[in-house]
Amino acid sequence: MPIVCKRLLIANVVVFVLQIMITRPLGPPDFAQRLENLPQILESMPTESMTQEQIEQYEMMQSAAIDLIPPRVSVVQEWCELDPTKVAHGQVWRLITSAFCHDRYMIWHLLINMIFLYWFGTRLEQMYGSREFALFYFTAAVCASVAFLALNWYTGDMTPAIGASGAVWGLIALYAIHHPYETVRVYLLFPIQIRWLALLYLLLDLHPVLLALNGDGNPDGVAHAAHLGGAAFGFLYFKYDWRLERYWNRLPVVGKEEKWQNRRVKRPARSTIKLHQPETGGLRVYSEPIDPQTKRMEIDLDRVLEKISEQGRESLTDEEIAVLESASKRYRER
Rank of each mutant, 00 (worst) to 15 (best):
R185P: 05
Q311R: 09
G129V: 02
A231R: 08
Q54Y: 09
G221S: 14
N12T: 01
A176R: 08
N218W: 05
I10F: 04
L305P: 06
S271W: 02
V4F: 10
R313C: 09
R246P: 00
I22C: 08
Q19N: 10
F31E: 02
N12M: 10
V146M: 03
L203A: 15
G27I: 02
E81M: 03
P208K: 02
L199C: 12
W153E: 04
I321R: 08
V87P: 03
A167T: 06
T97D: 08
D241Y: 08
Y187D: 10
C101Y: 07
M61I: 04
L210W: 08
K307L: 07
A173D: 06
E258D: 12
E78D: 14
L202F: 05
R264Y: 09
Y181W: 08
V92R: 03
Y201G: 14
V254D: 00
A144T: 07
L124I: 06
N218D: 12
T139D: 02
A173N: 10
G217Q: 04
L213W: 09
L316D: 01
R330I: 01
L42Y: 15
R104L: 11
E306T: 07
V323C: 07
E325I: 10
E279A: 14
V184G: 04
G281E: 00
L174N: 15
R296G: 02
R246F: 08
E245P: 00
Q193Y: 01
Q40L: 15
E279I: 11
T155E: 06
V254Y: 05
A212V: 11
S326P: 00
Y118R: 00
L188R: 00
R24P: 01
V75K: 12
R296L: 01
A64E: 15
R7P: 04
G166W: 00
F116C: 14
G170Q: 09
Q311E: 09
S74I: 10
Q311Y: 07
R243V: 00
L68H: 10
R267E: 13
I3K: 13
E53P: 01
L244A: 03
I162H: 08
H179Y: 06
